[in-house]
Design a protein around this nucleic acid. Structure first.
Ligand SMILES: [Zn+2]
Ligand SMILES: [Zn+2]
Ligand SMILES: [Zn+2]
Ligand SMILES: [Zn+2]
Lengths: 158, 158
DNA sequence: AAGAATATGTTATAAAGTAACAAGTCAAGA
DNA sequence: TCTTGACTTGTTACTTTATAACATATTCTT
């Protein structure tokens, strides 16, 4: 994943994308009295370093490389924690997870998924959410919103 | 599912909702030289008569009552056909399916899911899609879009 | 009637996600 | 310091969701 949606589909030095995010997550979790334990931290790193959304079992495979056991709850617990804390999002179209690009900030995530290169971009979807609120019947109160678009990025179309 | 989103969360005579839709599907499939075979037709009826989105295995259970065999491909094939023809939509948040309320018409479906009563409403999401297109990076071409909101309808909030 | 395309029957398996309970860790209060 | 309670992890087993693969049947075209 990439902090700048415009760069998500462009080649770039990706290693720098994830460095600061971990540090920020540490601060955020300390402020909330939540524990960013080794599995959780490593899971977040794995998501941050990926160029795409990762399935729980893909994450699990990478956790195994770090000495954790290959058992689904290991991955799901860590992922569920990250999602609950807003450090990651679930991408339902893909049965997958991705690190949040705006951790600690109130936002409505919207995702663009390139079906050519699998790259994923998270956009601020506030305007999208407002358009939906306008269209919704009076009285319906939206709690959680998934906005997921599949398509082709500029590079993959040419 | 309900033709009028405003009525989706209100009690009403539901049997009338599905009657015309089947006839329209027949016409539409004939026009496209597609075959609305017995399983497919029955599957569509099942979706139309439900007050909520149905999982493939829920559909399968109902197909069994009609004499079809309880084998996953039976349900998935029929559902996949309906989705491909735009007669049904897949609701990814729920791993479920729902009959389309605007079959044969070009539209961007947006869904409201009540977590109290499980009722589902399909709204025209064109405005929502335009808001997302505006927010997307230049060059990204959206093919398919999922807009799914979970929340509480008026009745379930009170 | 023959051949091609489409649809269905059937078996088996893959992929994704969760329940349940035991055991360990940690930090606050007695 | 010891105890207690909350949280976290280890582990087994299982449920739910979805698809691959191949045989058979039906329908459409020539
Ligand atoms: Zn986010
Ligand atoms: Zn691409
Ligand atoms: Zn529709
Ligand atoms: Zn409701």
């Amino acid at each position: 994943m990439h902090p700048d949606p415009a760069l998500a589909f462009a080649t770039h030095d990706h290693s720098r994308c994830s460095g600061a995010a971990i540090a920020q997550a540490e601060i955020l979790m300390a402020a909330r009295n939540q524990r960013l334990t080794p599995v959780r931290k490593r899971t977040l790193e794995i998501l941050l370093q990926a160029h795409k959304a990762l399935g729980a079992y893909e994450v699990l495979d990478k956790l195994v490389d770090d000495g954790f056991r290959r058992q689904p709850p290991v991955a799901y617990r860590a992922l569920d924690f990250l999602v609950a804390q807003g450090l990651a999002h679930r991408i339902r179209r893909l049965n997958a997870f991705a690190a949040c690009m705006y951790p600690g900030r109130v936002h409505v995530p919207a995702f663009l998924i390139c079906e050519g290169c699998q790259a994923l971009a998270e956009l601020p979807g506030q305007a999208v959410a407002e358009a939906l609120d306008t269209a919704a019947p009076v009285g319906f109160k939206i709690d959680r919103l998934s906005i997921e678009a599949a398509g082709l990025c500029l590079a993959c179309r040419t």
